[in-house]
Design a protein around this nucleic acid. Structure first.
Lengths: 139, 139
DNA sequence: ACCTTTTGTAACTCCTTTTGATACAGTTTA
DNA sequence: TAAACTGTATCAAAAGGAGTTACAAAAGGT
């Protein structure tokens, strides 16, 4: 359970919201559907709200709904909204400074990380939430 | 220290081997350069050897060297050689079966994972170990 | 106004994974 | 045969994610 499942859950949650249209959905309901704890969902929704993808309302009759049409929400936005880690981590301990290779390795790898992240985002930009809905329904 | 730094270390290690040419390098030396434990290095080299990227020899005067020229080792091969996880994890607990969204979500996300992984590999295929050497040296 | 419902968050435990470390068997060289 | 390595098993330590409980703050209904 260590790997980041936040993106997966986020897509799931957003799909539920998309299906609910303008109706506000409660974290309790979503949690039941995703099969987890409501707080986990609220934490996630908090991130999505910061990114402007959803709108939540507190209080009785509160809940969350999409901030935009499904066709205007790209999965790349979802990905960027979450505090997911990079594809690979840099060295945990800094390499030995006496090693000529180690000295410049970090800079190279850091640049590579950014390139990869860009690739991922480009790929995810091809899908909107509406695409997801269609795939889910036709399956 | 939870995130996977194996890819980063692998590139570092392979660069050291590339710089050493045909000479066999000992895990102790590499560990000193990367600033970690020799066993961590040997575990990693074990993966790289399975993938046919390096050749190790046991016994006195043993050590490891590249199995091919740096120009013939692509970073995508390094990536594939390692048991790194996926970019995002699927749900840890299976979604509620009563939820129509949850039922088909896993299949969609699984396909998406594969697509992303392909993107990463395509990007990494553009770099050979020789490219890394050049970047490291010119910096 | 008050009570209920619901979000937002802090704090804590639990679990998993990665890393680091020790130990030792098996191999090879001299 | 002794010394120097790799290959691995095993364990402890560290970090992070996920699940929980608890509660303050906000909003609606009566």
């Amino acid at each position: 359970m260590a790997a980041n499942s936040q993106f997966a859950i986020a897509v799931h949650v957003l799909t539920i919201l998309a299906k609910s249209g303008d109706e506000r959905v409660k974290s309790d309901y979503i949690a039941g559907s995703v099969n987890t704890n409501p707080v986990v969902i609220r934490r996630l929704l908090s991130n999505l709200q910061e990114a402007g993808l959803v709108v939540s309302q507190v209080g009785a009759a509160g809940g969350t709904s999409l901030a935009r049409q499904p066709k205007d929400i790209r999965l790349s936005e979802v990905y960027k909204a979450l505090p997911c880690g990079e594809v690979f981590a840099l060295h945990s301990k800094e390499p030995n400074r006496d090693c000529p290779v180690g000295r410049n390795m970090a800079a190279f790898l850091c640049g590579l990380q950014k390139e990869i992240d860009k690739s991922i985002e480009e790929r995810l930009r091809q899908y909107t939430l509406r695409d997801v809905l269609e795939r889910i329904d036709e399956a």
